[in-house]
Design a protein around this nucleic acid. Structure first.
Lengths: 295, 295
DNA sequence: CTTCATTACGACAAGCGTAAGTATG
DNA sequence: CATACTTACGCTTGTCGTAATGAAG
């Protein structure tokens, strides 16, 4: 069965004659005759009664037209769905974020994304960097914000911004007198680590910066609680720039004078992804972080 | 948009790869590639992610497939509707019957028709013969049972059966002594006529048999009432053979020995009607009255 | 090296428009 | 005779299969 035949049929029925429909459709009347003849032949049912003053539906044709109109409406729905989806207006996006929580730029970015694409359901998944990569590669995630460690197969990456790290010290701590700190002086301190789920991901990240064999203390608690512990003098911890901008009682934030005291946050997504929503997200992130990037 | 492309798409999605779908559909894989490429191009949306281990739907493709499957289901509904209708299983049939009521053969026939085609809604319209013809010609009726008077334009007719007419006489009437009556002896009687709506159709029919200028008495009452009047001695009337077979208190039925003491009942329908239901009805009536016909 | 998807190319068929035909009012 | 549907014919277009290409496990 040809789609065009069904469209021609409805036009002829609506116009009431082959000739009028031919004008509307800008085709020759003979085309309509042939198409509808073929359709009737295929269906084994006479749909139209031809006369010299137009056409009329048979009772069978009336019944068929009900189904045909519904079918054509669904056809429009197909095109409409495609148009809507191709604009990336709707869909779902599973976004992974690295465990050591990323701060301000991300929140702002996601808020703006949501403003532009309110119909896209965005789900966040927190996991260690390595898991993020494999999840993106396996397509359990559509995209992820990772620390840029290098190239992975089948995963495309794009640098977005850098998060500077700050040291969180108890007020009155000797280091508070200094303008900035470095890894060397922090190595003498007890480092408090937030570790919600025992994954040790944050701990390992800190170890990659400070070196192994440090006196880490993992706490299955919120960042707030960890900072409270810092304020109480239990040790020191590391926070992102965004977090350091806000005051916290009993805690002093100091910049770290080290080249690697930062997280290069990259966007990662599956190379083979042809999803319109993912494409939109990637280009959105690219465009909206251009100004915020720290070289 | 091509219907075949949508069918190919669902096959590929269901099979999970172009190659498997190609085997199922018994087409070449290149055909599928081309069709789906064209479809994606037309929709402006990538539906499938190709890999070397098959294909997967994009999120847009998933959404489109919902609409596509519904569309194809409706397409099946079109074909199914046509198949059902072409068998004449369903529909409506407006059947006109002549005013001087036709008796037994019709009732039996319609009962049988209903038994074979219970889904066809049959509506009866009683009107004078002339109106029946014009109604059929104008397509206000699909078919009609008429007295065969001759050919009408655009109306096909087919003789079905003959209804013999009987005279209904009061018990004890002199004519009751005879085996049969004829027009001549009836012309001396008052002829009671049932005339529901003042159309005088029955009256004119009787006049065509008995001749004009007869003492007719129209009664806007049921056949039962008219026969009661006959039993009370108000006059005589004519009934069909079927009616004469049943007793009526105070009334005697006598055959009429006249060649035209009958109604040749014909089936009439619009020549241009291409309706499957009408066609079924015509051939049904033709087939089921062959044995009952009186030559 | 096999499997799967894509691209190129040629044969074939299908669809369309022009124009002539038929029937009706 | 003007209108409206149908049929016949030739051309264009599109569609399909074969075969070659590319890419990945």
């Amino acid at each position: 069965m040809r789609l065009k035949a069904l469209q021609y049929l409805t036009a002829v029925v609506d116009a009431g004659s082959f000739a009028k429909a031919a004008v509307m459709l800008e085709v020759n009347a003979s085309t309509l005759t042939r198409c509808i003849d073929a359709l009737e032949d295929e269906l084994g049912l006479t749909l139209l009664e031809r006369s010299h003053s137009g056409v009329r539906l048979t009772s069978g044709g009336t019944a068929v037209m009900v189904a045909v109109r519904r079918m054509l409406a669904d056809l429009d729905a197909v095109a409409e769905t495609a148009r809507y989806k191709s604009a990336g207006n709707e869909g779902e996006l599973k976004l992974g974020v690295r465990m050591p929580p990323i701060g301000d730029p991300l929140e702002t970015l996601l808020a703006e994304w949501r403003g532009h694409h309110p119909k896209v359901s965005l789900t966040l998944y927190e996991m260690p960097d390595h898991d993020l990569y494999t999840a993106v590669e396996n397509r359990r995630l559509d995209a992820a914000l990772v620390a840029g460690y290098g190239a992975w197969p089948n995963v495309a990456t794009e640098p977005l911004f850098c998060e500077l790290l700050f040291a969180a010290l108890p007020n009155g701590h000797p280091l508070c007198a200094r303008e900035s700190v470095d890894w060397n002086c922090l190595r003498r301190e007890t480092i408090l680590v937030q570790d919600w789920d025992g994954s040790h991901a944050t701990r390992e990240f800190y170890a990659s910066l400070l070196g192994i064999g440090m006196p880490f203390q993992s706490h299955s608690a919120s960042e707030q609680s960890v900072l409270a512990l810092v304020g109480a003098g239990f040790g020191v911890t590391l926070v992102t720039h965004g977090r350091a901008l806000a005051d916290f009682p009993g805690v002093t934030f100091k910049p770290i004078r080290e080249p690697n005291a930062q997280m290069r946050i990259e966007l990662a997504w599956a190379l083979e992804s042809k999803d319109a929503v993912v494409g939109r997200f990637v280009s959105f992130m690219r465009d909206n972080t251009r100004l915020k990037r720290i070289p």
